[in-house]
Computed example of a mutant assay.
Amino acid sequence: MTELNTRSEIRWAIFGPGQIAGDFASAIRAVCGSIEAVGARSLDKAQAFAREHDIAKSYGSLDELLDDPAVDVVYIATPHNTHHEFILRALEKGKHVFCEKAITLNGAQLAEAVEAAQSRGLVLAEAMTVYHMPLYRELLDLLAGGKLGAIKSIHVEMGDAKEYHPGNRFFNPDLAGGVLLDMGTYALSLVKMFMPGGPDRFLTDVRKADTCVDEEAFIRLHGGLGESASVSISFLADTGHVAFIVCERGTILIKDFTRAVRALISYEDGTTETIPAGERAEALSYEVRDFNAWVQGGETPSTLGWSIGVMAMMDQARSSWGLRYPDEV
């Protein structure tokens, strides 16, 4: 950590050259200027990604990438079921890790990864856009100021219609498919930010696909301070991505909440206010900047507690559904 903290440059590598990795590569380049390396389980795929994104080094295995001494941070963008193994391997080689959501399959895996990072003085965090959008910092500050009073309830709806195929990542249990780990992570991350102490009661229902993973689910949470939350997630319909927070003296409406840049505040006296913050196109750049700051400061990410809390809620939901993945510990 000492050598890294003495220089301003943080050198990123990408493992898992899929679509989201392409978007994230643009964000790394915008913030850091360059990308040190890319790796994949296929050298051809790594080389093709390197050519497309002007990356000098490409590797055909995770071990080769991790053996590169010039790499400080590894961004992992592989299927959910591989995250736990790849995170641990990267940490063992002394790399900081920024991993796509869902960061692991369950709480036990995440606890092991957190312990591995902290024992080595390394930074581990989940690539969850909700945690990094400037708008949410504005809203948390607004609520802390007391103008709207205490939160009474939170309502989150998120649905994207997915064409069913038993082999794709959305529906394949071998790839830890299902709507909870794909969309539920976003919805529950928003809930966790605004309900930090909950839940103390938990109700849920699920509709499963033919592959026995969840394709639609409803979750009802009750917090320790009397607040509640409802979450509806679906692979069956395009319902939009909307969050609605009901407070004692007004409401907050957030559209496109995963990368939100404005919120509509409605006060009890009938007046309204729009709060703008951030740029949607900068969503992934905010992630890179925050992670760089944590690495430079040798800090435990402020978002890690939220990730742990969300994973506990997802564990509870899947336990009630009787859903367990082949790769789980």
Rank of each mutant, 00 (worst) to 15 (best):
P134S: 13
A176D: 03
F244V: 04
V73F: 12
M133R: 07
F194M: 01
K101R: 10
Y131S: 03
G309R: 10
N106I: 08
I14V: 13
Q118F: 03
G159S: 10
Q47T: 12
F24W: 04
A125H: 11
W12H: 00
I265N: 02
K208Y: 01
E227M: 02
F171T: 07
G167W: 14
E100P: 03
M195G: 03
T104W: 13
R207S: 11
A37Y: 00
I233E: 07
A30Q: 15
G198E: 03
P79E: 15
N168T: 12
A229R: 04
T185C: 14
Q109M: 11
S230F: 13
C32Q: 14
V246K: 14
A70Q: 15
S302D: 11
G121R: 09
A150G: 15
V242L: 04
L188G: 09
A187R: 12
F24I: 11
V213N: 04
R11P: 07
E248A: 14
E268P: 03
I35Q: 02
G177R: 07
M133A: 07
F202M: 06
T303M: 10
D256P: 02
G322I: 15
M158W: 09
P134V: 02
S285N: 12
T271M: 06
A56S: 15
G16E: 03
T239C: 05
H165K: 14
T251M: 01
A243E: 02
Y186Q: 14
A117S: 08
A237E: 13
G146P: 03
A317P: 13
L65S: 00
M1C: 01
T204H: 10
T258H: 11
Q296W: 08
Y164K: 01
P69S: 06
H241A: 09
S189M: 05
A263F: 14
S8M: 02
D67W: 07
D238H: 08
D200A: 04
E100N: 08
D315M: 05
F218A: 11
L304D: 05
R169D: 13
A217C: 12
V295P: 03
C99H: 06
Y131M: 09
N172D: 11
Y136H: 03
R201D: 09
L284I: 04
T82L: 15
H83F: 03
S302N: 06
Y164V: 07
N292W: 00
I252E: 02
A125E: 13
L236F: 08
V114P: 01
T104P: 06
A27D: 04
G18N: 07
M195R: 00
Q19P: 00
G107P: 14
A13Y: 00
L65I: 00
H83G: 10
T78C: 11
